[in-house]
């Protein structure tokens, strides 16, 4: 799983590399454009293009009927029934591309969330390091040591929450760059990267995942914690980020969908795709 994750992640690293110093909108436009094209091609190759063309023409014809025979109730009802049937057919034709698209799209969105969903830490701003222990561990008794790298400082003693098997610390960064925590427990060592003062477009990984399938799907940026380590997850609370459009704060995913659809429609003529 990690091999797939790291390879898939590298695609985005390469894609965004030239644009990291620019406004996140540049990366967003690029990735939306590519997604729009991808959707077009998937549509073209997996859908029944002729069928779609036909069913669309038929809907048009029935709409015309409706207008022409608007005085005849029985004819109107028949036309409306036909339109409904054609619509169902249209939906069934486009269902296949949707099904094909849905899985890659989810994986892409998960990746993009790390690029557009979080802000790196600013020096002197406090946040939380959260370690979730394995089920058999008691946070009050765990033999755990956390060593911050030179650009990080711990601000509090550990706060132990028994009901959720968590240990939390408040910390802040004193200098920019990639920092890390080295966590030692039961002789095992795990590190967690901490992004401080990064470029405008940067991949931020809030959580080092547990060694299970779902966690790895949801948190693909970092290799999972090895199963012999009695820690489930290590999390850094990063501030969330939104896209700023002339003063309006919008969630990146809305920008992404809207732009992808716009690009899809804009280029459907160029690639002769029936939608």
């Amino acid at each position: 799983m990690w091999i797939f994750n790291s390879a898939f992640g590298k695609i985005f690293d390469a894609l965004f590399l030239p644009f990291r110093d620019m406004s996140p909108w540049v990366g967003m436009i690029l990735v939306s454009f590519l997604t729009g094209l991808l959707m077009l091609f998937v549509f073209k190759w997996t859908s029944n293009q002729q069928g779609i063309q036909k069913v669309k023409n038929r809907i048009k014809a029935h709409l015309l009927e409706l207008r022409l025979f608007k005085d005849s109730l029985s004819q109107s009802l028949r036309s409306q029934g036909n339109i409904l049937r054609c619509n169902l057919k249209y939906i069934s034709y486009s269902a296949k591309p949707m099904l094909v698209m849905i899985l890659p799209l989810i994986l892409i969105i998960i990746q993009l969330n790390f690029w557009f969903g979080y802000e790196s830490l600013t020096p002197n701003e406090s946040t939380i390091l959260k370690i979730k222990l394995a089920e058999d561990q008691n946070p009050l008794e765990a033999q755990i040591a956390v060593q911050p790298s030179s650009g990080l400082v711990m601000e509090t003693l550990p706060l132990r929450i028994e009901e959720s098997q968590e240990i939390n610390w408040r910390f802040s960064a004193t200098q920019g760059g990639m920092q890390e925590f080295t966590v030692t427990i039961d002789g095992e060592t795990v590190t967690k990267k901490v992004a401080v003062a990064q470029k405008p477009l940067s991949k931020i990984s809030p959580q080092k995942p547990d060694n299970n399938f779902l966690d790895q799907v949801l948190y693909p940026v970092e290799a999972p914690i090895k199963s012999q380590v009695p820690i489930k997850t290590i999390e850094i609370q990063y501030p969330s980020k939104s896209m700023n459009l002339f003063g309006w704060e919008i969630h990146w995913i809305i920008a992404y969908f809207v732009l992808s659809i716009i690009f899809g429609f804009a280029f459907k003529g160029v690639f002769k795709v029936q939608i």
């Binding site: 009050l140 550990p158 706060l159 132990r160």
Partner: peptide, 11 residues
């Protein structure tokens, strides 16, 4: 609010 059982801390 979550309180540490020993340390004078709360989340």
């Amino acid at each position: 609010v979550f309180i540490d059982p020993v340390h004078p801390l709360a989340k």
